[in-house]
């Protein structure tokens, strides 16, 4: 069995608030010095899902990441955690792709890998939170897609998935090969040991450029980013007076109604 896990390098969502900056001209988040990118948290859950299946049934787990400038030490963590191989899809033309184009590149990579039984992605990335790439990737590959999975099991050539829904979970089955997007409810990525970090240096790391992929022309962006800004948060505190608590409460209700909040 061969499992591909798509992992994205993102700006650290846990960076200190005071260090967070947006460049309104470039419409980009400015990563502060000394704050390395990280693996998108849901993609870490996706890798854990693949490793759990590998532990139970035996499989080759291949981590794939795409971008224009990928940080090896960050992405090598996938190998240290247990992935058998890491493929970096790195090319200047892969800079700032939207979810549809990104899914096209990832699909080309999956096709190049060959026999793939499952593809895991995070339910969404922590930078743009679109949650589109996994579904479009399935569409590109012609695979069924199950989203927001909290548990994944494989038996008799079928995948059985527990999906998180608003009031609990539902169970869905699909034939292999398929794409599953993983939720944090599946569990955190396992702890990495120092020995595993050393061993990861000997695992295969491949670099594929755009020219190495049988890539159709990338679709034009379907979304246009009009503006990017940190919303202003204002807090005004007003005390309601009244001769009695009841009168103060009545005054409060009036004020809330005036503001259109009631």
């Amino acid at each position: 069995m061969q499992i591909v896990v798509c992992v994205k390098q993102v700006v650290d969502p846990e960076m200190p608030h005071s260090a967070f900056r947006v460049d309104p001209e470039q419409k980009r988040v400015v990563p502060p010095p000394g704050t390395p990118p990280v693996l998108s948290p849901f993609d870490q859950n996706a890798l854990e899902a693949a490793l759990q299946i590998r532990d139970r049934l035996g499989a080759k787990v291949i981590a794939v990441s795409m971008g224009s400038s990928l940080a090896r030490p960050v992405l090598s963590r996938t190998l240290a955690a247990g992935a058998d191989e890491l493929i970096l899809l790195e090319d200047p033309s892969f800079r700032d792709l939207d979810s549809f184009a990104a899914a096209g590149v990832l699909a080309a990579a999956v096709r190049k890998i060959g026999e793939v039984d499952m593809v895991f992605t995070g339910r969404q990335s922590s930078d743009w939170d679109s949650g589109i790439t996994g579904c479009v990737l399935a569409e590109e590959l012609g695979f069924p897609c199950i989203t927001v999975a909290s548990k994944v099991e494989i038996a008799d050539g079928q995948v059985r998935v527990e999906r998180v829904i608003a009031d609990g979970f539902e169970v869905v089955e699909a034939p292999l090969p398929c794409v599953v997007t993983i939720d944090s409810a599946l569990g955190e990525l396992r702890q990495v040991t120092l020995q595993a970090l050393s061993a990861a240096r000997k695992k295969p790391l491949r670099l594929w450029k755009a020219a190495d992929l049988d890539l159709p022309p990338l679709p034009p962006p379907r979304c246009e980013l009009l503006d990017l800004f940190v919303p202003k948060r204002e807090t005004n505190c007003e005390f309601m007076d009244g001769d009695t608590p009841g009168a103060a409460a009545a005054r409060l209700a009036e004020r809330l109604r005036e503001e259109g909040l009631l």
Binding site: P32, P33, T35, R72, L194
Partner: peptide, 25 residues
């Protein structure tokens, strides 16, 4: 210090450092 911060910002550090920082987090 700033050279290190510059490299860390690019995602370059020693693997052992990721364990130290994970432990901190």
């Amino acid at each position: 210090y700033s050279t290190r911060a510059h490299l860390a910002g690019m995602g370059y550090f020693l693997p052992e450092h990721s364990m130290i920082i994970d432990s901190l987090r």
